[in-house]
Amino acid sequence: MYRRLPLVVTGGLLLTLLTAGSAAAAQPGMAKPAPSTSQMLSQPATADRTATGSAAPAKSLAPAGTAPYALDFTMPTLGKSGCMVCHGDPNLIRIKGDEYVSYYVSEAVLNASAHGPSKKTPSGVLCTGCHLDFASTGKHSDADWKRTARMACRACHTLEDDAYGKGAHAVNNRPGQTDPNADKKPLCGDCHGAHDIARLDANGLAALHRNGWQVCGRCHQKEWQSYADYYHGAAYKKGAPDAPACWDCHGAHEILPSSDRRSPTNGTNLAATCGGETAGKKCHTNVNDEFLSYAGLIHRRAAMLRENWLYSFIRNAQTGISDALSNIADAVRSWFG
């Protein structure tokens, strides 16, 4: 065993030298300057590496057999250096097909977010806290890169990740069968956003409460449209702070369909859901089965209205009269050329 020691030490020294060399090159202002916006635009491989993963393999100094990392790449640091040298530039864009895609990150927005500097974490969460694979030069598709970034939350938010894993939003691979909807399943970032995740103070909670369309409605458009009864949906959509957001009834991370007995909106759990607390406030008291029948109105009222024969009659009459007037107006116009 000791016969191999010189070989190991020599190898270690060589690796150390190489690493030190690349670290020295990584110091901003010392060696390779960060690429400018024009460089980013003219060098898609570099841009890919920084923002959406690496499409073209670059020079890798990593030992063979491990993931290829561009260790000479500018290291992320605080302030307007590191990642923000480029990503702090509002003009940092790439042309993807017919679209301009921005890679700009507003430092002000980031600092004001939940992951910005705070008493608990004075430096805030560094870019690499979430963008774990930022320097990887291995082949990533855009989807892979986004998945990594949007699932990075699990590293810290383990409880939420556990709950997410039990819900309908998690990829549900089964032995021998891949979830056919895996690509459509939302990741943390799809609901929570990225650099502007609000702090959970009073203002942040209020902002989150108003954000139902962004969080849920964009995907669940049918449910968003039907969320139209007076006391919940209509009031919520008009900014009532005491009206429930989607997650106040449906839960947050362990989202399940209402048909699932574990879902808070399943009939077996409605009493607890409606009679429970939302943001520290009890919604309804002493709920019973008859009272809970009102829950059917929350997403069904618009449909019930359409099914009402008098309402249908009036709407049809309105349409008929409107069409008739329109025809008459057309006829009159045609008479006068």
């Binding site: 089965d289 008859e290 029948s293 009102y294 059917g296 109105l297 009222r301 019930m304 209205l305 009402n308 008098l310 309402y311 009036i314």
Partner: peptide
């Protein structure tokens, strides 16, 4: 009052008065 009537009343009231 049955549950059906309770929810239907809610809808009917709007329809009736907005028609009336």
């Amino acid at each position: 009052m049955s549950t059906l009537i309770l929810t239907q009343v809610n809808v009917w009231l709007d329809v009736v008065f907005f028609t009336l």
